[in-house]
Computed example of a mutant assay.
Amino acid sequence: MKFLKRNPILSLVNDFFIDSPLPANITYFWNAGSLLGVVLVLQILTGVTLAMHYTPNTLYAFASVEHIMRDVNYGWLLRYLHANGASFFFIVVYIHIGRGLYFASYRPPRLILWTVGVVIYIVMMATAFLGYVLPWGQMSFWGATVITNLLSAIPWLGQDIVYFLWGGFSVDNATLNRFFSLHYLLPFVLAALVAVHILGLHQYGSTNPLGVRGDYLRFHPYFTSKDLVGFVWLFILLAILVFFMPNYLGHPDNYIPANPLVTPHHIVPEWYFLPFYAILRAIPNKVLGVIAMFSSLLILLTLPWFTRLRLAGNTPLMKSLFWFFVANFFLLMWLGGQPIHSPYIQIGQICTVLYFSYFVIILIMG
């Protein structure tokens, strides 16, 4: 231990992962941060390996994925770990954000910590969208077409931005190359943002269920043992998904090669985008729908700036409203996968209003 403290590099490891003080009363919900770190490492390792065999060309992309699945040693395992690892990434990040909202972890002095965390979440969504396009199946192609077309709602410059993203006048080979390059790059940007996030956590400390100062314990061994429990459960659940139902969270149309001449009957994104897709579809006007969709993410950034009272988030009323918000979020997720007709549109509009109302109440009461 003395060697760890004397060495200039290892002393940082010691400060952050061994002697770092944490509240004694935090629960297993505080494991989500370390679980996200493990999943990020898993995604980078499997992603770099898959990139060695993937061909970012519209003529060969689908075939190269099948080559990985059928011909590369354990290629099927790498691909299923990567695809389902992305789903687990979002499952854990939603738990992490939910815990932050429930215990009002966005309150000062954790402004930078929360802001960087929201930026990480947005970069995650961009990375996942880019990765979903790479298999070049039907849903990949049409999902890319629909989502990138949303930027055309930007006044004056929108269509030019879309053409720039596409690298032409339609989603084609240049688009796939750009998406592959960005999908490879962004995980390393994520890793850098995570390092900043950890620095912020070390600087301002962690919250706890009571929201007040109490006894503090060293990170190791008191909380590393808790993290190990979380790691075991994570890998058990991921293994069940990978080995027994690897395509459960995917869409069957993505096993059909991309065909620009045949539009799928019902275009849907991955499950973790469905709540925001439902918000987009709930508003008939394209520009207002795009604004609402992006606002549903960016509103998270406003919470530290407009909330000041430390205990407001821990009142029984706010906790009850939080669980109502969670139920509404899952309802939006279900609505995002439904056809675009009555009564789903009307229900989506009500749920969209309720979604934003929760944050308005936080801002007013905070």
Rank of each mutant, 00 (worst) to 15 (best):
46 T>E: 05
203 Q>A: 14
173 N>G: 12
265 H>A: 14
148 T>K: 09
100 G>R: 09
264 P>N: 01
168 G>D: 06
22 L>G: 00
352 T>W: 00
234 L>H: 12
104 A>G: 15
150 L>C: 02
135 P>T: 04
133 V>K: 05
259 N>T: 08
192 A>H: 02
92 V>W: 04
33 G>K: 09
194 V>S: 10
210 L>F: 01
347 I>D: 00
347 I>V: 13
332 L>N: 12
257 P>N: 03
312 A>S: 14
32 A>G: 01
5 K>V: 04
97 I>T: 15
166 W>H: 07
141 F>V: 00
301 L>P: 11
169 F>A: 08
240 I>F: 15
195 A>D: 04
309 L>F: 07
58 T>D: 00
41 V>R: 02
104 A>E: 01
91 I>Q: 04
266 H>Q: 13
182 L>V: 03
139 M>K: 02
8 P>Y: 09
65 V>Y: 06
112 I>S: 15
131 G>N: 06
165 L>H: 06
158 G>F: 09
69 M>L: 14
339 P>N: 06
185 L>R: 01
125 M>Q: 12
365 M>E: 10
92 V>C: 13
336 G>Y: 08
212 V>P: 00
123 V>H: 04
120 I>R: 05
353 V>Y: 12
193 L>K: 03
189 V>C: 02
49 T>C: 07
297 L>R: 00
259 N>A: 06
94 Y>G: 06
257 P>Y: 03
190 L>V: 04
187 P>A: 11
50 L>M: 12
91 I>Y: 15
340 I>E: 14
352 T>I: 01
249 L>I: 12
251 H>K: 14
330 F>P: 00
323 W>I: 14
133 V>L: 15
357 S>Y: 03
98 G>D: 10
243 F>H: 01
162 V>I: 03
80 Y>A: 05
171 V>S: 08
42 L>I: 13
53 H>T: 03
301 L>W: 05
20 S>L: 14
72 V>D: 08
340 I>T: 12
68 I>A: 08
145 T>W: 03
105 S>H: 01
21 P>I: 08
144 A>P: 10
198 I>Q: 09
